[in-house]
């Protein structure tokens, strides 16, 4: 998939918000919902993986570095999600302030 660039994601999202029209709205809704759902799902997945690793480490089956890496991945995913959420909120506010 390549490295995610938040700018690209932002542009993609914003361009969808700014375009008007029924069909576009339908597509946007679908694209958005799935995108966000997917993101949340993946983040909670990573959290679950991290928790699993912690239990394994306590049981003596996983090593410390594996657990640390899992925790870091969970944190990074969460931060990305939060960043995207913040951007979405910003975009939403911007639109709300637009004069039509």
């Amino acid at each position: 998939m390549g490295d995610i660039k938040l700018d690209r994601l932002n542009t993609y999202l914003l361009s969808h918000i700014k375009t008007r029209g029924e069909e576009t709205k339908k597509i946007t809704d679908k694209g958005f919902k799935d995108l966000i759902k997917e993101a949340i799902y993946k983040v909670s997945n990573r959290e679950r993986e991290a928790d699993k690793k912690i239990i394994e480490m306590l049981k003596g089956k996983a090593s410390v570095h594996e657990t640390m890496i899992a925790l870091q991945k969970a944190e990074i995913s969460m931060r990305i999600l939060l960043s995207v959420r913040n951007k979405l909120l910003e975009a939403y506010k911007e639109i709300m302030h637009m004069q039509f």
Partner: peptide
């Protein structure tokens, strides 16, 4: 969504850490 962030280099390093542990 964030899979691309943890790219090839990340995975290689992760594996090498495991190898040196073994």
């Amino acid at each position: 969504m964030a899979e691309g962030i943890f790219n090839r280099v990340f995975n290689i390093l992760e594996k090498m850490i495991g190898v040196s542990r073994i």
